[in-house]
Amino acid sequence: MFAFCTDPSTLPDWQWFACYLTSGTHLAFYWSFVVVMVLILLAAPFALAFGFAGALATRSHMAPIRLVGRTYTSMVRGVPDIVFFLFIPIAIDQALEYILHQVRCPDWDMPIRRGNDFLVCAQAKVPLSSSPAWVHDIYAFSLALFAFALVFGAFAANTLYGAMNAVPKSQTETAEAYGMTKPQAFRRVLLPQMWVYALPGLSNLWMILIKATPLLFLLGIRDIVYWARELGGQKTGFYAYPHPDWRVWYFLVVLVFYLVLTACSERVFEWLMRRFSHGQATAAGERQRRAAA
């Protein structure tokens, strides 16, 4: 990084640290913070979409669809989320390879599960083993993203379902009395009003999502936790910057990062809540009105 970094062993302390903290592995460590933020920002809308679908399914008039919705929303209640994080990526990976195997290698006569191995033909590998490294990385990240969206979608489905029910019945009844069809009433009356009721739950969900991101580590992604462990571990003379076990400091940095992230989110949600309460016929809205008067 810096010109003086060519021989770290001779440097005075501050230069040594300047070089150490800008080494290639440290840049990768800093980049992993960005990856976590990207995961949060991508997982949130996907989870909301899954959640919306789940809430609609739970409200459905057709029993089978309702059952699917119910199962989906309650699955995260009985089973720890981490089980899903471990299970979903592998399950999807094997499912994709299995389907591709059926399509691309129809005359393969050996069983796919042999003993303890899962063997598909080379053309059915996802991604193909000839693909460049970044394809493998993106694929792993996408699987993780999907797992996060699916689990948090189930959480969101429950929040949204509750919010839909919280909108006073008279509102939709009036809409239907005006001659709107059920879907129209849903779109024009229920949908715009439900968000106020959903916001507290969704803000909480956002917090849980943030706090679940270190689990990326378990999915084999080189995330913050991976690098904190890797960089903090003792480094012997084979490395350019030997040092004793510093993991406690690296994890302290990670801990502070998350505290700052949740504290900032909290501020934003408080502000949003104030905005939403403005002009509402609720206690909070009334207090705002009186304070202004």
């Binding site: 592998i90 094997q94 490294a133 493998h136 990385d137 999915l219 992604i221 080189r222 991976y226």
Partner: peptide, 10 residues
């Protein structure tokens, strides 16, 4: 299966 490859050095 932990097929998820940490990273590859091309």
């Amino acid at each position: 299966m932990k097929k998820l490859i940490l990273a590859s050095v091309a």
